[in-house]
């Protein structure tokens, strides 16, 4: 009951926040990249792009958002897939192996975020 109350009241807000965060994160990645390229061309110091304090700031911020947003998404997916898997396993324990594969797939969403974050960090 508590679970359904939480999901019914907070779910729309969580979803809207997630979409907003994702859009904002994408925007930040492009802006920070463009900003850093612009600064580099002006100062003609291509080898020292990571020392630009603004680019570093937005880069870290984007990496944090990538991790955070993807982890929330993965949490929702694992919540859904995991409870379904438990439901199926409670009646048919032989389904455990197959059900765990789907939980793993849902968990993969967080790993995509981690990879994006690593790529961003590699650029700064």
């Amino acid at each position: 009951m508590k679970f359904s109350f939480v999901s019914s009241k907070l779910l729309p807000a969580v979803l809207i926040s997630l979409v907003t965060i994702s859009l904002f994160m994408t925007f930040l990645i492009f802006v920070s990249k463009a900003y850093s390229t612009d600064t580099i061309s002006h100062t003609e110091t291509t080898s020292r792009q990571s020392t630009n304090p603004e680019a570093i700031k937005w880069g870290f911020f984007s990496a944090a958002l990538a991790i955070g947003a993807s982890t929330i998404g993965a949490a929702i997916a694992v919540g859904l897939v995991g409870s379904s898997a438990m439901g199926a396993m409670s009646e048919r324990p032989e389904m455990a192996g197959r059900a765990l594969i789907f939980v793993g797939l849902a968990e993969g969403i967080a790993i995509y975020g981690l990879i994006v974050a690593i790529m961003i960090l590699g650029k700064i």
Partner: peptide
């Protein structure tokens, strides 16, 4: 919302 409420129930009923 419905998926959250019924994910466990639906899987168990289908089993």
């Amino acid at each position: 919302k419905a998926a959250f409420q019924y994910s466990y129930i639906n899987a168990k009923i289908r089993s």
